[in-house]
Amino acid sequence: MSVESRERILARVAKATASRAGLPHPGALVTPVTDDPEAAFVKRFTSSGGEVVEAGPGRERSAWLTRLLRGLDPEVVGVAVGPEVPPEFRPRLPEVAAAHAGAGISVAWAAVAESGSLILPSTGTRAVQLLPPVHVVWVPRGRVYGRLEDALRELRRNLSAGVGLHSGPSKSADIGRTVVTGVHGPGRCMAVVGSYAPTGTSET
């Protein structure tokens, strides 16, 4: 039935548009280019409720992240960490299933200044990105795009099955027009900028 419907729908579409001139594509949408994508990302992401932290130049990222998470919640007993996160970027805390974790740790494919977004591939575990109340995301150095269009153009060559763009904490104003956070996804979304260099790339 679906095959018949396919032919029927496509035939109806063709017939409906046959007498109408095919209109041209207007080309690319022109949007401003920023000189400092990282600063623009920080501004946009934080204005949407996201948080940005800097891990500093040291090599002890694991210890730093552990301190950060303990500072957020001294009682935190376990974290969920995506498989893409290298050992030196994992906190020194027990790793537990995402549904029971106090925080999820991921690595973004890139960030985007224009929309204030973190682009998260599904090669990192999706549950880690969504179930814990806090989501901490390492943003690779030099991977902050100014424009969303440029990021998506590049992403076309790296598309995983289910890419997520996260641009702040989970929120809703469905009850009494009052904004509440952490409705379904993480109530805190933290981007760590300036220090993550993927394994195999040179540290500076």
Partner: peptide, 14 residues
């Protein structure tokens, strides 16, 4: 500027 979450679904987990 954009929704807090955007899902771009290409297909099943691979």
């Amino acid at each position: 500027p954009i929704g807090c979450f955007v899902s771009l679904i290409q297909g099943p987990a691979a």
